[in-house]
Design a protein around this nucleic acid. Sequence first.
DNA 1: CACGGTTTGTTCACTCATGGCACAAAGTGC
DNA 2: GCACTTTGTGCCATGAGTGAACAAACCGTG
Lengths: 404, 404
Amino acid sequence: MNGKSTTTRTKLERGRSALGPALELVHTGRAPTRAVLTSELGVTRATAGAVAAELEALGLIKVDSSPGSAAGSQGRPSHRLSVRDSGPVVLAAQVHADGFRAALVGLGGRIVATVPGCVAVMADPAQVLGEVVEAGAQLLRESGLRCVGAGLAVPSAVAEPEGTALNPLHIAWPAGAPVRDIFSACVRAAGINGPAFTGNDVNLTALAEHRHGAGRGAQHLLCVATGHRGVGGALVLDGRLHSGSSGLALEVGHLTVNAEGRPCHCGGRGCLDVETDPLAFLTAARREPGPEESLLKQSGDLLRAEYGDPAVRAAAEELIDRLGLGLAGLVNILNPDRIILGGLHRDLLEADPERLRAVVADRSLWGRSGSVPILACTLDHNSLVGAAELAWQPVLDDPLAALA
Amino acid sequence: MNGKSTTTRTKLERGRSALGPALELVHTGRAPTRAVLTSELGVTRATAGAVAAELEALGLIKVDSSPGSAAGSQGRPSHRLSVRDSGPVVLAAQVHADGFRAALVGLGGRIVATVPGCVAVMADPAQVLGEVVEAGAQLLRESGLRCVGAGLAVPSAVAEPEGTALNPLHIAWPAGAPVRDIFSACVRAAGINGPAFTGNDVNLTALAEHRHGAGRGAQHLLCVATGHRGVGGALVLDGRLHSGSSGLALEVGHLTVNAEGRPCHCGGRGCLDVETDPLAFLTAARREPGPEESLLKQSGDLLRAEYGDPAVRAAAEELIDRLGLGLAGLVNILNPDRIILGGLHRDLLEADPERLRAVVADRSLWGRSGSVPILACTLDHNSLVGAAELAWQPVLDDPLAALA
DNA sequence: CACGGTTTGTTCACTCATGGCACAAAGTGC
DNA sequence: GCACTTTGTGCCATGAGTGAACAAACCGTG
């Protein structure tokens, strides 16, 4: 009379199958009310009601039925759905050239608490990640919230399925460092629950922007960003990150964008990487590059503050033209329906949006593709939020299993 | 390439949900027996049995229970599954520079009947497609089989969602011709049942090779092929064709592969398109190009018959190096786990596989990605079979609804 | 302020795909 | 022949989801 199920079959732990999609809709803000949830899921009102009630019982969302607020249209007002404030969180961490940042991120990409750690990044990933995770664990203790996973963003390609960082150049880690294993070990050592994930920062930026920022609603979202050195890219297809068969997709830095350009370490010349990064900009603008970590900031400030300066403007236009050529090449290959730019590329876009759009339209094959919207990244700490998305994914896929 | 696989599923027409996946497994040859089907679907034997029985009742597959054939292993031999011989077919058609071909294609990519029509392709798409469809309808009448749809492959990018051919250059059709609408109209006029689809021939080649040829089992399959003029590409991700947001993805012809190369009509120079097509090969080998339609054949024959000739060999090696550079660029962007080559590119691969693989490995960023397997297309009439796949897709997605 | 009209939430019986079992069937090896 | 293994089949339980009827909450209008 007691043991109904002894063996843990796969299907036994399967909950309501619409649970995951429903949570994702609330998570991404596409289901503000239960009525919208019903139509978005394509189920009956009864089912949507049961699903919403179950998600509320799990402590993930809030179903607000009381308020006689501004309805606008006629008919009975629908219950409003939102992410629960004091629901579970994930630990998100980000490592970059200037240091690290740890945060607690709730559903909806909401940063609950964050602390920027300002260590000078050292060559030992284990030590750095230990500090990052400890900072996150401290936040977690202070908050008293439940943690369901952890995610880490690193400025390097991450090979699948090994989880090794292939080119963590500007954080001076050894190439091939097993960052995923190290991060997982740190997370476990800190007593944090849930699985741990690691990904490339530009990939995670794209993921975050797709779910909560400028990429919302795009079906084929291309993201290109410059960090301190080098160029990264990412592609989100139908809501899922496309990182290739071994995690190395969208290494777009070595598209040729200037046949007479400077030689690149890859063996070619005129690569996007060396033609559109902050160092290239400062050089073209005939400014003295400062210390490496601040190249990005230095470039952005210069671009915003002194765009009137002919040398700065000429340098910017040169880079915009190169960037446009690279983007046009990617448009021809990937045919995205939206492009978002980060880092210096974002600053270049904002300096002269029309010029960039014109170059892309002119150099991509079809007028249609050329009219791809090009937008700037909008989220603060987008790769941090992206790292959190990584950790949230199991919950979105199967809330019952992930919270069990 | 027509309907974007409507995600808004109306539960009314929902049959057994495992029906589609099961049919796809049999269709692609990945479920030779019912036992394999059971494990591949991840369901119980009872369910797999019911699904197989239902597919058999629908006249789509054959369940072979009798044979006491060579089992090999111990235990009760499983029923063998195969595509039914006299089951429904789709009408597949292909238009190319030398004429057209029409065929009836069953499940499993089996060409039941075919007729090569050898018209000189004229400037009027309606007339050509009318002839093609009529040839197919004739085959259909002779066979007496049931037709559940039609698919067409054209040597041009096909814009979505309009279904217009953007660059049907070597068949002398007007750019922007509404090929899908024309084809659909012809199919309806011929009294053929089922929906009609139209797609780019290289895309369809990739789809066919993925399901029945050299691309089987690949998760991220990149296909690059040269026809008579120009280069086309295609990408199959997780079994579905990726054709971008408006059908124009993988227009790979204008990757720069030779900084000092000849100018291209796209505005750049040294594009893959003009550096690795049959005309480029013949020119490099200092041979007199014949009439346009036979450039491809002429090149292939030359490559196979006279590879000992120093001029031919040098030309081939030059093209292989250029092609390798282009493929390496695509590897960096797409990170496929397999590459298949068609047309002249296939001939180049077979002329010197090691050289091509070495170039790709050398010029792609990571050793891992460099070791991507590069294979030749294997199917006869692969774009024809791919066109059939397009027409089969609704049946694979939902057999009950599609056959109703 | 009662009135229909509209939209949404809720309850309940019903459907049906699937899991879980027990048992039968069909092979191999000794 | 007999154990053993593997697969097919019949039957019941489960549970997610539907569909329809009803209740609730808001709008307007007179």
